[in-house]
Every structure is written in C-alpha cells, then in structure tokens.
Amino acid sequence: MELQDIIKEENIVFKKTKLLNDKPLSYCPGCGHGTVHRILMETIEELGIDEQTIGIAPVGCAVMAYEFMEIDMQEAAHGRAPALATGIKRVYPKKYVFTYQGDGDLAAIGTAETMHCCNRGENILIIFINNGIYGMTGGQMAPTTLEGAKTSTSPYGRDVSTMGYPIRITELIAQLPAVRYVTRQSVHTPAAVRKAKAAIKKAFEYQAEGKQGTCFIEFLSNCNSGWKLSPVQANKWMEENTFKYYVPGDIKDNFKLLKNPIIE
C-alpha cells in the first residue's frame, strides 16, 4: 500500500481541536500547560459549548492563553481571575465561564478572590495548574513549592520555619460548602490525560445544570525548565515527590467530601 492511499480523511484517528489555533505555544517543551490547553479546548468542542464559553487568562506562564484558545477570553490582573469570572457569570448566568490560573496566581496573590469566589459557590470552573514554582518570572518559590526544594528565591531549599509550608489550597477549598466538585489530576501520562479530560467534562456538565456550586480542578504539572530537569526526569521527580504531598484523585464530588482532606 502506498503512503497516499493511507493519508485519507476516513483514516484519520486524531485531529487537533479547532479551538486551538496553529500559533506556536509559548510554553517550554515538556510542560503540562500545552496538554491541559488541548484537553480543555477538546472538551469544550466536544460538548459544543464554544459559542457560550468565556475564559479568563491569568498572569503567569499562561498569561497569553487567549492567544492560542479560539474562544472569547479576558486577561485578568494577577490573581483576580475569579473576580472577573464572577463579574461575567453574574450578568450571564447561562454562559460557561472558566478561569485558568497558576499556583502563584491562585494560591498566593489571588487567595482571597479564589476562596471567596468558591465560598459564594460561583457556578464556574476553576482550572489550577500547580507546578510548584513561578515559571514565568524565572523559577522563584511558589506557595506550593515543596519543603526543601531549591528555587531562585529559596536557594538553600524551602525552609518552612521562615517561608511557610507548601499550601494545599485545593484541600482548603474542598472544605467550603458551596464548592461542588474538587479533584486533583495530572497530564504526565496518556492514562492521566484521559482521566483529566473526563474531569473537565464532568465540571462543565455540572456547570450546565445551573446549580450553585463551584468546580475546581487542580492539575499537577512539571516545570522542567524551573526544576532544571529534562521533561522525563521532571515527570519522574513529580511522581516520586509531588504526588506524595499533593495526592492525586477526587477530593469532593457533588458537594460530598470523598476523603479527609487533612493528609498526614
């Protein structure tokens, strides 16, 4: 069989979603952002809700998410994405609204906006990329940086006695009664990607029900540039270290806590 005979419309097994354009992504090769962008846009396309969806980009590595996603989007100030999302959702309760935020954006400077948005049970989806570092500004300590981890602002390792503990904000958020769905996912293996995509789908389906309740998905991601590891090494390091402190899996579903969020 000739190659030309194989390259045919009916033989296509994978197609890039139309909701991601062909601009080169601004993320480092090996980073999880690109994969999360893809499954997020795929899900929106598959659910057919692209004409009703408004996304909010953060400040951080994903600051230009709106450059790649082919839907209406707004770019927020650092940490304020949940406030913008609230502002939009309240005047357009039937539209789908999501925020896309990193750990510095969501768990440091935007903690108040995040907690109170979730406490009001805004019917939106918060996507939280946790790579334990400030990637965009060159590898500084994040609120989620693990104890002992070396970054450019914790060059001798994170000392929890002076720098505080890595914050499990996802577990904190799960405690809020108006939060409907909380899960921690990753995109470092094909199996994880499939599970993560199913979580996004569930969150949008919940949002469609119009019931008061926030959906919150944390994605554990590597930052091979910031961690100064190859992508493969970074993913291995993440499995061996990050997953022990930030345990992947569903934490809350349909307003019910699935496990004690206080981890030993």
């Binding site: 304020r80 406030a83 913008l84 502002g87 939009i88």
Partner: peptide, 17 residues
C-alpha cells in the same frame, strides 16, 4: 464582594462582556 480589589475586577469582567 470580599474586597474593593475584587469588586473592581468583577466590574472589569462584566464590562468586558
């Protein structure tokens, strides 16, 4: 809202829409 910081950013979101 929970603060003036949040209120002005809620305004930002709604105004952008």
């Amino acid at each position: 809202a929970e603060s003036e910081v949040a209120s002005i950013n809620m305004v930002y979101g709604a105004a952008g829409a």
